[in-house]
Amino acid sequence: MATEATEAVSSCVGPDGSAIGMPQLCFDWFPNQIFWLVITLVVIYLVLSRVALPRIASVLSERQGTITNDIAAAEDLKRKAEEAEAAYEKALADARAEAQGIAQATRDEIKATLDEASAKADAEIAARTAESEKAIAEIRSSAMSQVEIVAKDTAEAIVAALGGKADSAAIAKAVDARLKG
């Protein structure tokens, strides 16, 4: 200790360099302590209020802003995803409806074709039937006239065989009368 070489520097430090009483109560040092303390506090205050605090405040608010923005962006994206999902659902429903429509139309078309074909077939069948019936009627009527002819011939033959001589006009008249009768 340098103080050992010299005599007591002040009323608070003894000649051996150790304190007399409490150094805290040495009034000789008060002006010095207060002076340097005030300087220190002013320096700290200026540094904090001019540089550090605005900087930290801006960093904190910037971080808050970033977080808020990110949350907003996330919400935006979520909304977009929901919209996309709704659009997809709608497209799916539309496609399903369209497919159903196409199937229905195809079914209707096939049915119409089928109906038309079956109507055509029916008509043809009816025409054929009528034609056949007509042919049968013709055949029947021609058979009738053949019968008449045969009957007249037979009657003429019978009359001839019986030795009569009948004129064909009278026989035809008689046969016709019989056939009608």
Binding site: A2, T3, T6, V9, S10, C12, V13, G17, S18, A19, G21, M22, P23, Q24, C26, D28, W29, P31, N32, Q33, F35
Partner: peptide, 19 residues
């Protein structure tokens, strides 16, 4: 209590207001 003694940092002498 010696740890609380205030000493001039440069040289010896009395502790003035601006020491």
């Amino acid at each position: 209590m010696d740890q609380f003694i205030i000493k001039p940092l440069f040289g010896d002498g009395a502790v003035g207001m601006f020491t």
